[in-house]
Simulated assay, not measured.
Amino acid sequence: MTEGRRATLKDVAAASGVSRATVSFVLNETPNQTISEATRKRVLRVVRELGYRPHGIARALREGASRIVVLFIASGLEGNYSRSYVRGLDEELAANGHVLMVRHGPTGPDAAKQVLDAINPRAVLRFGEVYQTGHELDDLGGGWRDGLAAHTALQIGHLAEHGHTAIALALPAEAPLAEVRLGFAQQAARSCGLPPLRSLVVPRPREAGAAAVAEFRRTAPEVTAVAAHDDDVALRTLTALRDLDVAVPGECAVIGFDDTEYGALFTPPLTTVHIDAEAHGRVAAREALGLDTAGLVPAPARVLVRRTV
């Protein structure tokens, strides 16, 4: 074989002294073939020695789809949850001979069609899709057990345990799941016996955020704690409170959500909710491949107690 040239099925067959069909049967573990164990071992040894890898396009034509799974992540959904989800999804797919491709940005029909036409993936997944289709309680774990609803309840419950009864939910100007989060937060507040939450939009840039928080505090002076949509909004809220000379947590407590590394670097360090979604990603991978999902138990979400509550 020429130096640097990729080994082919023909090369493996020639080096093994068998037909290309036999090599294919061995690699695909085709049932009902009378291939001796010695021949099978010889073929696999040659495969290793030559570094042979099946050609993706040829395999896609044979199997009817490529071994690529595509994940769309809409803007605004990046965070610790998505990172750990992607990690679990990627590792589980790799363990089962598939490759993950992640696309950030638009997730609509046109974007999906472009991918389908280009690579014919095994499956197309949309991160957080269940929360954008009106079935927000059908997520992995059943919503209130181990999904976004439960994680939101953990955040609101932590503030309630610290004696806060007047709470606001801080939201970004635009977020794919803002309405869902607000709905879950209101349900969590009712479960804790709290009055309805106030909502507060904290926009960019810094000056706009400070102005919004100042106006909110003028109209809702009873609010003593803010639960943020995510750590990014929490840090914008903390910055605004600092610019307004409001003591945290003395005058107003703040809790983040989804634990970015920046929260621990802020002064005061941000209390937040940490969510490990690796098992969720592994479940999604197995479901996409039609495999059993038994035994995959997500790690429970937890509050990282720092100094803003």
Rank of each mutant, 00 (worst) to 15 (best):
286 R>I: 04
299 A>M: 11
133 T>G: 12
90 D>A: 15
100 L>M: 02
35 I>N: 01
200 L>E: 03
92 E>R: 01
181 R>A: 10
285 A>R: 06
78 E>M: 15
231 D>G: 01
60 A>C: 01
230 D>F: 05
133 T>Q: 13
54 P>R: 11
175 A>T: 04
85 Y>N: 08
275 I>N: 00
184 F>Q: 04
119 I>H: 10
112 A>M: 15
234 A>Y: 05
164 H>M: 08
296 L>C: 04
118 A>V: 11
259 D>K: 09
43 V>Q: 02
222 E>A: 06
188 A>N: 00
207 E>V: 10
65 A>Y: 09
98 H>C: 07
114 Q>W: 11
5 R>G: 14
4 G>T: 08
276 D>I: 03
32 N>G: 10
120 N>C: 11
227 A>V: 06
246 V>F: 00
123 A>P: 04
135 H>K: 13
65 A>G: 09
9 L>V: 11
243 D>Y: 07
102 V>H: 07
284 A>S: 14
274 H>P: 09
138 D>E: 13
158 H>R: 06
285 A>V: 00
48 R>S: 12
78 E>N: 14
110 D>G: 12
302 R>V: 11
223 V>A: 09
268 P>D: 04
198 R>W: 12
240 A>W: 05
80 N>V: 13
159 L>E: 00
129 E>T: 11
134 G>W: 07
92 E>Q: 03
65 A>F: 10
286 R>W: 03
249 P>K: 04
219 T>L: 12
298 P>S: 01
20 R>E: 14
113 K>H: 15
86 V>W: 02
243 D>E: 08
34 T>D: 15
103 R>D: 14
87 R>Q: 13
71 L>I: 04
72 F>P: 05
224 T>E: 09
78 E>Q: 15
220 A>L: 04
17 G>P: 03
114 Q>C: 15
126 R>T: 13
26 V>A: 02
61 L>A: 04
124 V>R: 07
197 L>D: 05
15 A>C: 13
205 P>L: 01
115 V>S: 10
150 A>V: 02
214 A>W: 11
78 E>H: 14
95 A>I: 05
87 R>C: 11
21 A>I: 10
300 P>C: 04
294 A>H: 07
121 P>G: 03
300 P>N: 01
1 M>L: 14
120 N>W: 12
47 V>A: 05
14 A>I: 12
114 Q>I: 12
23 V>Q: 02
234 A>I: 00
93 L>P: 00
154 L>H: 02
261 E>A: 14
250 G>K: 11
175 A>L: 05
91 E>P: 10
109 P>A: 14
57 I>Q: 15
238 L>G: 05
281 G>C: 05
43 V>M: 09
184 F>V: 07
241 L>M: 10
7 A>T: 00
28 N>S: 12
138 D>N: 14
299 A>N: 10
23 V>W: 07
97 G>D: 06
53 R>Q: 11
59 R>K: 08
245 D>A: 13
72 F>H: 10
303 V>H: 01
60 A>K: 07
279 A>M: 00
158 H>W: 05
22 T>E: 04
35 I>Y: 05
300 P>G: 07
293 T>S: 03
90 D>V: 14
17 G>E: 01
12 V>S: 06
18 V>W: 00
